[in-house]
Amino acid sequence: MSQIVRGVIASKKGQPVEVTEVVIPDPGPGEVVVGVVACGVCHTDLTYRDGGINDDFPFLLGHEAAGTVETIGEGVTAVAPGDFVILNWRAVCGKCRACKRGRPQYCFDTFNANQPMTLTDGTPLTPALGIGAFAEKTLVHEGQCTKVDAGADPAVAGLLGCGVMAGIGAAINTGGVTRDDTVAVIGCGGVGDAAIAGARLVGARRIIAIDTDSTKLQWAREFGATHTINAREHDPVETIQELTDGFGADVVIDAVGRPETWKQAFYARDLAGTVVLVGVPTPEMRIDVPLIDFFSRGGSLKSSWYGDCLPERDFPTLIDLYLQGRLPLQQFVSERISLDDVEEAFHKMHGGQVLRSVVMLK
Protein backbone atom coordinates (compact mmCIF):
# COMPACT_ATOMS: atom_id res chain seq x y z
CA MET A 1 0.00 0.00 0.00
CA SER A 2 1.40 3.41 -0.96
CA GLN A 3 2.45 5.89 1.73
CA ILE A 4 2.09 9.66 1.98
CA VAL A 5 5.07 11.57 3.38
CA ARG A 6 6.33 15.15 3.55
CA GLY A 7 8.82 16.19 0.89
CA VAL A 8 10.45 19.26 -0.69
CA ILE A 9 9.63 19.97 -4.33
CA ALA A 10 10.58 22.57 -6.90
CA SER A 11 7.44 23.16 -8.93
CA LYS A 12 8.52 26.05 -11.17
CA LYS A 13 11.83 27.31 -12.52
CA GLY A 14 13.56 29.68 -10.12
CA GLN A 15 10.70 29.73 -7.63
CA PRO A 16 11.16 29.00 -3.91
CA VAL A 17 10.81 25.33 -2.98
CA GLU A 18 7.79 24.11 -1.06
CA VAL A 19 7.10 21.36 1.44
CA THR A 20 4.16 19.22 0.38
CA GLU A 21 2.74 15.69 0.50
CA VAL A 22 4.43 13.05 -1.65
CA VAL A 23 3.08 9.61 -2.48
CA ILE A 24 5.60 6.75 -2.17
CA PRO A 25 4.42 3.56 -3.92
CA ASP A 26 5.12 0.07 -2.64
CA PRO A 27 8.43 -1.18 -4.05
CA GLY A 28 8.20 -3.17 -7.26
CA PRO A 29 10.76 -5.69 -8.57
CA GLY A 30 14.28 -4.48 -7.82
CA GLU A 31 13.02 -1.48 -5.86
CA VAL A 32 13.50 -0.39 -2.24
CA VAL A 33 11.72 2.07 0.05
CA VAL A 34 14.22 3.84 2.30
CA GLY A 35 13.33 5.83 5.40
CA VAL A 36 15.53 8.88 5.00
CA VAL A 37 17.36 9.95 8.15
CA ALA A 38 19.55 12.74 6.78
CA CYS A 39 20.10 14.50 3.45
CA GLY A 40 22.66 17.17 2.58
CA VAL A 41 21.75 20.33 0.69
CA CYS A 42 23.89 20.20 -2.46
CA HIS A 43 24.38 22.87 -5.11
CA THR A 44 22.98 20.41 -7.64
CA ASP A 45 19.60 20.67 -5.91
CA LEU A 46 19.69 24.44 -6.39
CA THR A 47 20.59 23.89 -10.04
CA TYR A 48 17.53 21.66 -10.42
CA ARG A 49 15.34 24.33 -8.81
CA ASP A 50 16.68 26.96 -11.19
CA GLY A 51 16.14 24.82 -14.30
CA GLY A 52 19.83 24.23 -14.95
CA ILE A 53 19.51 20.45 -15.35
CA ASN A 54 16.34 20.10 -17.42
CA ASP A 55 12.72 21.24 -17.49
CA ASP A 56 11.10 18.12 -16.04
CA PHE A 57 9.29 19.97 -13.27
CA PRO A 58 8.13 19.32 -10.63
CA PHE A 59 11.29 17.96 -9.03
CA LEU A 60 11.52 16.06 -5.77
CA LEU A 61 14.82 17.46 -4.54
CA GLY A 62 17.57 15.93 -2.39
CA HIS A 63 20.12 13.24 -3.13
CA GLU A 64 23.00 13.28 -0.57
CA ALA A 65 21.24 10.93 1.78
CA ALA A 66 21.56 8.15 4.32
CA GLY A 67 18.74 6.13 5.82
CA THR A 68 17.34 2.74 6.70
CA VAL A 69 15.84 0.21 4.30
CA GLU A 70 12.17 -0.25 5.22
CA THR A 71 10.66 -2.50 2.54
CA ILE A 72 12.02 -4.29 -0.51
CA GLY A 73 10.49 -5.46 -3.76
CA GLU A 74 10.59 -8.81 -5.50
CA GLY A 75 14.04 -10.09 -6.33
CA VAL A 76 15.99 -7.63 -4.17
CA THR A 77 19.12 -9.25 -2.78
CA ALA A 78 21.58 -6.37 -2.33
CA VAL A 79 19.97 -5.07 0.88
CA ALA A 80 17.44 -6.15 3.51
CA PRO A 81 15.00 -4.31 5.79
CA GLY A 82 16.90 -2.66 8.63
CA ASP A 83 20.12 -2.08 6.68
CA PHE A 84 21.71 1.35 7.11
CA VAL A 85 22.53 2.64 3.64
CA ILE A 86 23.95 5.60 1.74
CA LEU A 87 22.04 6.42 -1.43
CA ASN A 88 23.97 6.82 -4.66
CA TRP A 89 23.26 7.79 -8.24
CA ARG A 90 25.62 5.28 -9.82
CA ALA A 91 23.76 1.94 -9.65
CA VAL A 92 25.89 0.08 -12.17
CA CYS A 93 24.23 -2.22 -14.70
CA GLY A 94 26.98 -4.84 -15.06
CA LYS A 95 26.18 -5.27 -18.74
CA CYS A 96 27.26 -2.17 -20.68
CA ARG A 97 30.58 -1.92 -22.51
CA ALA A 98 32.25 -0.11 -19.56
CA CYS A 99 31.09 -2.72 -17.04
CA LYS A 100 32.14 -5.60 -19.29
CA ARG A 101 35.61 -4.08 -19.63
CA GLY A 102 36.01 -3.96 -15.85
CA ARG A 103 35.34 -0.21 -15.58
CA PRO A 104 31.99 -0.06 -13.77
CA GLN A 105 32.78 3.42 -12.45
CA TYR A 106 32.08 4.58 -16.03
CA CYS A 107 28.79 2.66 -16.36
CA PHE A 108 26.65 4.04 -19.19
CA ASP A 109 23.32 2.56 -18.07
CA THR A 110 22.84 3.12 -14.35
CA PHE A 111 19.57 2.11 -12.70
CA ASN A 112 16.77 4.11 -11.08
CA ALA A 113 13.41 3.03 -9.70
CA ASN A 114 10.84 2.27 -12.41
CA GLN A 115 7.78 3.58 -10.59
CA PRO A 116 7.30 7.32 -10.16
CA MET A 117 6.75 9.05 -6.86
CA THR A 118 3.87 11.51 -7.24
CA LEU A 119 1.95 14.36 -5.72
CA THR A 120 -1.37 13.42 -4.14
CA ASP A 121 -3.19 14.48 -7.34
CA GLY A 122 -1.17 11.93 -9.32
CA THR A 123 1.35 14.35 -10.86
CA PRO A 124 4.61 12.42 -11.34
CA LEU A 125 7.71 13.87 -9.70
CA THR A 126 11.21 13.86 -11.18
CA PRO A 127 13.58 12.80 -8.38
CA ALA A 128 16.86 14.71 -8.25
CA LEU A 129 19.60 12.44 -9.62
CA GLY A 130 17.08 9.60 -9.52
CA ILE A 131 16.89 9.76 -5.72
CA GLY A 132 14.61 12.50 -4.34
CA ALA A 133 15.58 12.38 -0.68
CA PHE A 134 14.28 15.66 0.72
CA ALA A 135 11.44 13.48 1.93
CA GLU A 136 10.69 11.30 4.90
CA LYS A 137 10.88 8.26 2.61
CA THR A 138 11.98 7.67 -0.97
CA LEU A 139 11.80 4.93 -3.60
CA VAL A 140 15.03 3.86 -5.31
CA HIS A 141 16.54 0.93 -7.17
CA GLU A 142 18.34 -1.57 -4.95
CA GLY A 143 21.62 -0.72 -6.69
CA GLN A 144 21.28 2.83 -5.39
CA CYS A 145 21.62 1.58 -1.81
CA THR A 146 25.08 0.96 -0.41
CA LYS A 147 25.18 -0.70 3.01
CA VAL A 148 27.69 0.81 5.44
CA ASP A 149 28.51 0.61 9.15
CA ALA A 150 25.43 1.69 11.13
CA GLY A 151 27.71 3.36 13.69
CA ALA A 152 28.24 6.30 11.35
CA ASP A 153 26.42 9.57 11.95
CA PRO A 154 23.74 9.69 9.20
CA ALA A 155 24.32 13.43 8.66
CA VAL A 156 27.95 12.67 7.90
CA ALA A 157 27.46 9.44 5.95
CA GLY A 158 24.92 10.87 3.52
CA LEU A 159 27.38 13.46 2.24
CA LEU A 160 29.33 10.71 0.49
CA GLY A 161 26.30 10.40 -1.79
CA CYS A 162 27.51 13.31 -3.94
CA GLY A 163 29.79 16.28 -3.24
CA VAL A 164 32.21 14.84 -0.70
CA MET A 165 32.69 11.67 -2.75
CA ALA A 166 33.18 13.80 -5.87
CA GLY A 167 36.03 15.70 -4.22
CA ILE A 168 37.76 12.78 -2.54
CA GLY A 169 37.44 10.73 -5.72
CA ALA A 170 38.76 13.56 -7.89
CA ALA A 171 41.98 13.47 -5.89
CA ILE A 172 42.41 9.74 -5.32
CA ASN A 173 40.54 7.96 -8.13
CA THR A 174 40.84 10.42 -11.02
CA GLY A 175 43.94 12.38 -10.13
CA GLY A 176 45.82 9.39 -8.73
CA VAL A 177 47.31 11.50 -5.94
CA THR A 178 49.77 9.47 -3.93
CA ARG A 179 52.44 9.82 -1.27
CA ASP A 180 54.86 12.74 -1.70
CA ASP A 181 52.86 14.43 -4.49
CA THR A 182 52.29 18.16 -4.66
CA VAL A 183 48.63 19.03 -5.15
CA ALA A 184 46.79 22.29 -5.82
CA VAL A 185 43.03 22.66 -5.42
CA ILE A 186 41.22 25.63 -6.98
CA GLY A 187 37.95 26.37 -5.18
CA CYS A 188 37.53 25.51 -1.51
CA GLY A 189 33.85 24.78 -1.07
CA GLY A 190 32.61 21.33 -0.16
CA VAL A 191 34.01 19.55 -3.22
CA GLY A 192 37.37 21.31 -3.09
CA ASP A 193 37.81 20.70 0.63
CA ALA A 194 36.95 17.04 0.08
CA ALA A 195 39.70 16.87 -2.54
CA ILE A 196 42.08 18.40 0.00
CA ALA A 197 41.01 15.83 2.62
CA GLY A 198 41.54 13.05 0.09
CA ALA A 199 45.00 14.30 -0.85
CA ARG A 200 45.95 14.49 2.80
CA LEU A 201 44.60 10.98 3.43
CA VAL A 202 46.94 9.42 0.87
CA GLY A 203 50.01 11.35 2.02
CA ALA A 204 50.44 14.24 -0.40
CA ARG A 205 53.52 16.22 0.61
CA ARG A 206 52.26 19.70 -0.20
CA ILE A 207 48.60 20.71 -0.62
CA ILE A 208 47.93 24.22 -1.94
CA ALA A 209 44.42 25.67 -1.62
CA ILE A 210 43.27 28.53 -3.87
CA ASP A 211 40.15 30.65 -3.40
CA THR A 212 39.04 34.28 -3.25
CA ASP A 213 37.36 33.92 0.15
CA SER A 214 39.52 34.02 3.29
CA THR A 215 36.95 32.03 5.29
CA LYS A 216 37.05 29.20 2.75
CA LEU A 217 40.84 29.24 2.82
CA GLN A 218 40.70 28.76 6.59
CA TRP A 219 38.34 25.81 6.08
CA ALA A 220 40.86 24.40 3.61
CA ARG A 221 43.62 24.53 6.20
CA GLU A 222 41.43 22.62 8.64
CA PHE A 223 41.04 19.86 6.04
CA GLY A 224 44.77 19.58 5.42
CA ALA A 225 45.98 22.36 3.13
CA THR A 226 49.60 23.19 3.87
CA HIS A 227 49.52 26.48 1.93
CA THR A 228 46.77 28.87 0.85
CA ILE A 229 46.54 31.44 -1.93
CA ASN A 230 43.99 34.24 -2.04
CA ALA A 231 43.46 34.68 -5.77
CA ARG A 232 42.31 38.27 -5.25
CA GLU A 233 45.75 39.14 -3.90
CA HIS A 234 48.17 36.82 -5.71
CA ASP A 235 48.43 35.26 -9.15
CA PRO A 236 47.58 31.57 -8.60
CA VAL A 237 49.80 30.19 -11.36
CA GLU A 238 52.90 32.14 -10.33
CA THR A 239 52.38 31.41 -6.64
CA ILE A 240 51.82 27.67 -7.17
CA GLN A 241 55.04 27.55 -9.17
CA GLU A 242 56.90 29.42 -6.43
CA LEU A 243 55.64 26.88 -3.87
CA THR A 244 56.73 23.93 -6.02
CA ASP A 245 60.36 24.91 -6.75
CA GLY A 246 59.33 26.53 -10.02
CA PHE A 247 57.92 23.35 -11.55
CA GLY A 248 54.19 23.42 -10.85
CA ALA A 249 52.06 20.90 -8.99
CA ASP A 250 51.89 17.20 -9.79
CA VAL A 251 48.08 17.33 -9.70
CA VAL A 252 45.87 20.42 -10.01
CA ILE A 253 42.17 20.01 -9.28
CA ASP A 254 39.69 22.58 -10.60
CA ALA A 255 36.71 22.43 -8.26
CA VAL A 256 35.14 25.58 -9.72
CA GLY A 257 34.60 24.64 -13.36
CA ARG A 258 35.09 27.91 -15.22
CA PRO A 259 37.34 28.59 -18.25
CA GLU A 260 39.59 30.91 -16.24
CA THR A 261 40.09 28.44 -13.39
CA TRP A 262 40.70 25.55 -15.82
CA LYS A 263 43.40 27.60 -17.55
CA GLN A 264 44.98 28.34 -14.19
CA ALA A 265 45.00 24.62 -13.47
CA PHE A 266 46.50 23.85 -16.89
CA TYR A 267 49.38 26.30 -16.54
CA ALA A 268 49.97 25.65 -12.83
CA ARG A 269 50.76 21.94 -13.27
CA ASP A 270 54.17 20.42 -13.77
CA LEU A 271 55.14 19.56 -17.36
CA ALA A 272 54.02 15.96 -16.85
CA GLY A 273 51.35 16.82 -14.32
CA THR A 274 47.64 16.09 -14.24
CA VAL A 275 44.67 18.46 -14.43
CA VAL A 276 41.38 17.21 -12.99
CA LEU A 277 38.14 19.08 -13.73
CA VAL A 278 35.51 18.28 -11.09
CA GLY A 279 33.71 21.63 -10.91
CA VAL A 280 30.68 21.60 -13.22
CA PRO A 281 30.76 24.09 -16.13
CA THR A 282 27.70 25.45 -17.89
CA PRO A 283 26.99 24.50 -21.53
CA GLU A 284 27.99 27.86 -23.02
CA MET A 285 31.50 27.91 -21.51
CA ARG A 286 34.43 27.62 -23.95
CA ILE A 287 38.24 27.40 -23.68
CA ASP A 288 40.71 29.05 -26.06
CA VAL A 289 44.22 27.69 -25.49
CA PRO A 290 47.05 27.59 -28.07
CA LEU A 291 47.36 24.04 -29.39
CA ILE A 292 51.14 24.23 -29.08
CA ASP A 293 50.68 24.50 -25.31
CA PHE A 294 48.90 21.14 -25.32
CA PHE A 295 51.60 19.64 -27.53
CA SER A 296 54.52 20.89 -25.46
CA ARG A 297 53.29 19.43 -22.17
CA GLY A 298 52.88 15.80 -21.19
CA GLY A 299 50.73 14.51 -18.40
CA SER A 300 46.95 14.21 -18.43
CA LEU A 301 43.84 16.35 -18.73
CA LYS A 302 40.92 14.62 -17.04
CA SER A 303 37.35 15.21 -15.99
CA SER A 304 35.98 13.56 -12.87
CA TRP A 305 32.32 12.53 -12.78
CA TYR A 306 31.19 11.59 -9.26
CA GLY A 307 34.85 11.21 -8.36
CA ASP A 308 35.09 8.15 -10.63
CA CYS A 309 33.71 6.27 -7.66
CA LEU A 310 32.27 2.80 -7.33
CA PRO A 311 29.87 3.15 -4.37
CA GLU A 312 30.00 -0.46 -3.21
CA ARG A 313 33.80 -0.24 -3.09
CA ASP A 314 34.36 3.33 -1.89
CA PHE A 315 31.53 4.15 0.53
CA PRO A 316 32.21 1.39 3.10
CA THR A 317 35.95 2.09 3.01
CA LEU A 318 35.55 5.83 3.54
CA ILE A 319 33.04 5.32 6.34
CA ASP A 320 35.48 2.95 8.05
CA LEU A 321 38.24 5.57 7.76
CA TYR A 322 35.91 8.19 9.23
CA LEU A 323 35.01 5.92 12.17
CA GLN A 324 38.72 5.29 12.76
CA GLY A 325 39.30 9.05 13.01
CA ARG A 326 41.46 9.13 9.87
CA LEU A 327 39.05 11.07 7.62
CA PRO A 328 37.32 14.15 9.15
CA LEU A 329 34.00 13.86 7.33
CA GLN A 330 32.17 15.40 10.30
CA GLN A 331 33.78 18.75 9.52
CA PHE A 332 31.64 19.11 6.40
CA VAL A 333 28.42 19.37 8.43
CA SER A 334 27.90 23.08 9.08
CA GLU A 335 24.34 22.88 10.43
CA ARG A 336 21.44 20.48 10.88
CA ILE A 337 18.08 21.75 9.68
CA SER A 338 14.50 20.64 8.96
CA LEU A 339 12.66 20.18 5.66
CA ASP A 340 11.15 23.62 6.15
CA ASP A 341 14.59 25.24 6.08
CA VAL A 342 15.80 24.09 2.65
CA GLU A 343 15.15 27.37 0.82
CA GLU A 344 17.09 29.30 3.47
CA ALA A 345 19.89 26.74 3.20
CA PHE A 346 20.14 27.51 -0.52
CA HIS A 347 20.71 31.18 0.32
CA LYS A 348 23.41 30.32 2.88
CA MET A 349 25.14 28.00 0.42
CA HIS A 350 25.04 30.59 -2.36
CA GLY A 351 26.53 33.15 0.03
CA GLY A 352 29.39 30.84 1.05
CA GLN A 353 28.28 30.72 4.67
CA VAL A 354 28.23 26.92 4.98
CA LEU A 355 29.98 23.85 3.65
CA ARG A 356 26.87 21.70 4.04
CA SER A 357 23.49 22.19 5.63
CA VAL A 358 22.01 18.78 6.37
CA VAL A 359 18.28 18.09 6.59
CA MET A 360 17.51 15.78 9.50
CA LEU A 361 14.30 13.76 9.16
CA LYS A 362 14.59 11.52 12.21
Rank of each mutant, 00 (worst) to 15 (best):
G203S: 14
G203P: 07
R205I: 09
R205K: 15
R206W: 08
R206L: 12
A209K: 10
A209R: 11
I210A: 07
I210P: 12
D211L: 07
T212K: 12
D213E: 04
D213L: 11
D213P: 07
D213Q: 12
S214N: 08
T215H: 00
K216R: 15
K216E: 00
L217R: 05
L217G: 05
L217I: 01
L217N: 05
L217F: 02
L217P: 05
W219Y: 08
W219F: 04
A220Y: 06
A220M: 02
R221F: 02
R221A: 06
E222H: 02
H227P: 10
T228S: 12
I229E: 03
I229Q: 07
N230E: 02
N230Q: 03
A231P: 06
E233S: 10
E233Q: 12
E233C: 03
D235W: 12
D235Y: 11
D235A: 10
P236S: 13
E238S: 15
E238C: 07
T239I: 04
T239S: 12
I240E: 04
I240T: 14
Q241P: 01
E242P: 05
E242F: 03
D245F: 07
F247H: 08
G248A: 09
A249H: 14
D250V: 06
V251K: 13
V252M: 05
V252A: 03
V252E: 01
I253S: 03
I253C: 02
D254T: 06
D254C: 05
A255M: 03
A255E: 14
A255P: 11
A255C: 08
V256K: 05
R258Q: 09
R258A: 13
P259E: 03
T261D: 01
T261M: 11
T261C: 05
T261P: 06
W262N: 00
W262C: 00
K263E: 12
K263Q: 11
Q264F: 01
A265L: 02
A265C: 03
